[in-house]
């Protein structure tokens, strides 16, 4: 067998091998199967049902509002509209809110024998995690160091300083106020949660105050910019 022939065979078998491997991988591709067991399916079903209920409630609420609009259109056009605006403002965090809730304090926690770098800020990831946890437990209004959290609030690390929107968190303790419909429940859930351990890993101490009857959260002080929205044609008429 000449050298050239061997090279031809090698080349051809290389291509065949490659095609075989690709074909093999293509046919091996696992199709996505439903591997949930009956409990998981039940749980998912329950979740969907809850969502369904919630949506129905919302539909009912809007239908009521619509009815009110229709009824009072002639008499006092403005009042309902103003009420809606107030409601929306409250939801968007543009008004001061007072209600029962809990107050959380984040402090530094270094024991006396500690030597090493001391961090003077809290990481954005940890703070976001805490906020997610609070939301999960039913928080309605939250402020961090008197900065109201709204839908567009960003918590991020800019040049090593964690900022809420544009307010830097530089000094401890950081006060987080939370308003919730059931402060007792929130308190208990926070007590049971492992989030304090996550804080301890960063040498921070998370303390949760006893449920308070009156927590005041100041309004969002920035301007809410709406970039990607416009009025529907019909509504203008």
């Amino acid at each position: 067998m000449t050298r050239k022939t061997i090279w031809h065979f090698t080349f051809v078998s290389l291509i065949i091998g490659f095609m075989l491997a690709v074909q093999f991988q293509t046919s091996q591709e696992p199709d996505v199967r439903d591997t949930r067991d009956i409990w998981e399916i039940r749980r998912d079903l329950q979740k969907e049902q809850e969502l369904h209920k919630q949506l129905l409630n919302e539909i009912r609420k809007y239908e009521e509002t619509l009815e009110k609009y229709e009824q009072q259109r002639s008499e006092n056009k403005g009042a309902i509209l103003r009420q809606t605006v107030e409601e929306l403002k409250k939801e968007a965090g543009l008004t001061e809110v007072v209600g029962e809730g809990v107050v959380l304090y984040i402090e530094q926690m270094y024991d006396e024998s500690y030597v090493g770098p001391v961090s003077d800020t809290i990481s954005a990831d940890l703070l976001r995690r805490l906020i997610n946890e609070l939301n999960m437990y039913g928080a309605e209004h939250i402020s961090i160091a008197d900065q109201r959290l709204v839908n567009t609030t960003v918590i991020r690390d800019i040049n090593g300083v964690t900022k809420v929107d544009s307010y830097p968190l530089r000094s401890f303790p950081i006060e987080i106020k939370v308003i919730t419909p059931d402060a007792e429940k929130m308190y208990n859930r926070l007590k049971a949660s492992t989030i304090a351990d996550d804080f301890a890993l960063e040498n921070l101490l998370l303390t949760v105050s006893e449920p308070q009857q009156r927590v005041v959260i100041s309004p969002y002080d920035g301007a809410v910019r709406v970039k990607q929205m416009e009025a529907v044609e019909e509504a203008r008429r």
Binding site: F9, T10, F11, V12, S13, L14, I15, I16, G17, F18, M19, L20, A21, V22, F24, Q25
Partner: peptide, 10 residues
């Protein structure tokens, strides 16, 4: 060459 091709493909 065949083995190399298969390896390459995988």
């Amino acid at each position: 060459g065949l083995l190399l091709g298969i390896l390459l493909g995988l």
